[in-house]
Design a protein around this nucleic acid. Structure first.
Lengths: 239, 239
DNA sequence: CGTTGGTTTGAAAGGACTCAAGAGGGGTGG
DNA sequence: CCACCCCTCTTGAGTCCTTTCAAACCAACG
């Protein structure tokens, strides 16, 4: 297990007030007055795939918003094994531990090339004291993170792998032209999400393709020819 | 799967200001002035084991604090299977979804006889607007819940079952007179926590007892003769 | 064109599941 | 107070799924 050191590229300060995805993120409920209270700079960074934004145990100074790409949150067990505890998607907030503790509780590693906003925690705490709107938004985001983690945990980790994979695809699928597409990640990573070895993921994908549940399996994505059929499969398996 | 209807017994209104476990729960940081703003009643309830406090999908009107006993939070998957996503322990807050959504995201069922405080959500929101301390405490509790859920997820669901059980015991063990003791729950429930069938739990317990890692396995608890040895086992397995 | 990192595939071994039967404990009614 | 029932836990044997260890494959890259 080697540590990869990749520096993020600084992309300039963010203009949060006119941010395109602002409505879905942390500052959604802020008004002009609130923005005027932001003094510390909020940086806009991009990282390459495999870059580690922070490691479990690092001193936590920033909260992040993911603008583009995917990030895995890795929790390391005492024995050195690890699990992916959350898959961060665009619009999600992560690293919120910084707001109440000094240490990150998990590592954050880019699965793809990403774009993030890096928000110093002191902005939040100072703003928070004056702006109930801000606090409300944080509580809300936090709650969403918890719900997502629980649902993820429950649905992606129960039953035979083919079923877990099916649910995984359903959660991540989006319309793309004619048909639905779901992203794939390194087999190793997918194994860490679902608690199986990467070979098992590979075999399950092959088997599902053979059954026609998915098509065009590549390194990065699958097509879903028939969403309804996959949904049925996710429920009952293939009787 | 049958639904059990057990009414909670009302134990009177809570006197939060002089609550014995107040320091560890929601109102920890409130001062006298804050308390004077609480008008709606906070009820003190007790429930028997197996009572369902609320069900996934129910309209969420209360936040709860667990004073005594254990509670399981169950997430139901679309296909009807379920997983225990969190084990609530004394001092923990649960049902926080009520603060931001209308529906509970999981069911809460008593594993033992319990004692809870039932806090109407409007108290929180009204208090929260005026008291940053309150908000801070909520954020903190929420963060703890998320961290706990992630750690739980990762450590209790990775590796061979005997190892999962070992980690489970280490998390829940407490000193009791001479030696350490960890609680056990119905094998079925333990299976839902660790994603195995109840027979597998039973077998794993037997095997661990045979290896001397645990002793005096009963329905409700195990003794841990040698914490250090169990800890070593949780890391490396039994080479 | 040989390396390299990641993916696929194969065969054998191991762990968990299923189905099934039996044991233990607590509660109820005779 | 004992017999009986029900619920839960334990244990066994065979099957199924996942892991392990290995080898082959593939695409990207220097």
């Amino acid at each position: 297990m080697k540590t990869i050191e990749i520096k993020g590229a600084w992309q300039g300060n963010s203009d949060c007030e006119s941010c395109a995805i602002r409505s879905s993120v942390l500052f959604a409920e802020l008004n002009e007055e609130d923005f005027s209270k932001i003094h510390a700079p909020i940086d806009d960074f991009s990282f390459e795939a495999n870059a580690e934004l922070y490691a479990q145990g690092d001193s936590a100074e920033y909260v992040y918003t993911l603008r583009e790409g995917y990030i895995k949150l890795l929790h390391f067990n005492p024995d050195g094994t690890a699990r992916i505890v959350r898959l961060v998607r665009p619009g999600d907030l992560f690293g919120m531990e910084s707001l109440l503790d000094d240490l990150y509780k998990h590592s954050a590693i880019a699965l793809t090339n990403i774009h993030v906003c890096k928000i110093p925690k002191k902005i939040i705490s100072s703003l928070g004291d004056e702006s109930p709107r801000m606090h409300r938004q944080i509580v809300k985001k936090w709650g969403e993170a918890l719900s997502q983690a629980e649902a993820w945990f429950s649905e992606i980790n129960t039953g035979r792998i083919e079923i877990r994979l099916a649910r995984f695809f359903l959660q991540l699928s989006r319309q793309s032209g004619e048909n639905s597409v779901a992203p794939l990640f390194k087999r190793e990573d997918m194994g860490l999400m679902m608690d199986v070895k990467f070979e098992t993921i590979s075999r399950a994908l092959a088997s599902m393709a053979e059954q026609g549940l998915i098509a065009n399996v590549s390194k990065l994505s699958v097509q879903i020819p028939d969403l309804a059929r996959l949904k049925a499969f996710a429920k009952r398996g293939m009787d």
